[in-house]
Design a protein around this nucleic acid. Structure first.
Length: 198
DNA sequence: TGGACGATCCCCT
DNA sequence: GGGGATCGTCCAT
């Protein structure tokens, strides 16, 4: 008997998956250290959406988005940043959810050192540790090597959490894009201080 | 083969 | 509030 897939909830439309990802935990284990964060902000992307990398079909870069749900799509942008997405929907459909912010739970020192090592002197606080998509990747040391990684497995694992009530979820437009600006596919936990800023 | 652009972040004014 | 850093990807010549 094969046990049920704990990430089966990702096999849905990306907006539904983006809501369900709020409250889930991202775990990273290295060298006996454990990093953990709770997802508090997400954005949905789909192949029918002009703002998505998967718009107009797969390319070598975006193949992962069309692959198995529960895998990680990591892309490089602005010449210096990585961002990570959880692939959603059935295999063959180009959909994913961008992890925009985490609430740090464990491994603060490791996260801070990963963040600092990326650039010059920088004042790291608990708040600015993971309150943005590229910050999340830095803190968890996620780069292109993790593109296509299966999040069912360590060293980088996604654990289901208690789903948030609709009344705790704020539903609004996405950030930092020029096309399809008006699609309300950004979700975050109401009043959570670790959500990224405008 | 080249050039424009980007799901960002940080520092400076 | 605005601009610079910095390079992979994609599309137009």
């Amino acid at each position: 008997m094969k046990s049920a897939d704990p990430l089966a909830f990702l096999i849905d439309t990306p907006d539904v998956a983006a809501r369900r990802l709020l409250g889930c935990q991202l775990i990273y284990q290295v060298d006996g250290h454990k990093l953990a964060g709770r997802i508090v902000e997400t954005e949905a992307y789909h192949q029918t959406d002009a703002a998505s990398h998967s718009y107009k079909g797969p390319t070598p870069r975006t193949d992962v988005m069309f692959g198995l749900p529960g895998h990680l799509y990591v892309y490089f942008t602005y010449g210096m940043h990585y961002c990570c997405n959880v692939v959603t929907g059935p295999e063959g459909e180009g959909s994913a959810v961008l992890i925009r912010a985490l609430e740090p739970l464990q491994g603060f020192e490791q996260m801070a050192s990963h963040r600092r090592s990326k650039g010059g002197p920088m004042a790291i606080t608990t708040i600015n540790l993971t309150n943005g998509p590229a910050k999340v990747c830095q803190a968890f040391a996620v780069d292109k090597r993790f593109n296509g990684h299966d999040l069912h497995q360590l060293p980088l694992q996604l654990l289901p959490g208690e789903p948030l009530l609709d009344s705790q979820i704020v539903h609004t437009t996405r950030i930092g894009i020029s096309r399809a600006k008006d699609m309300p596919w950004r979700f975050y936990e109401k009043d959570n201080p670790y959500v990224s800023k405008r």
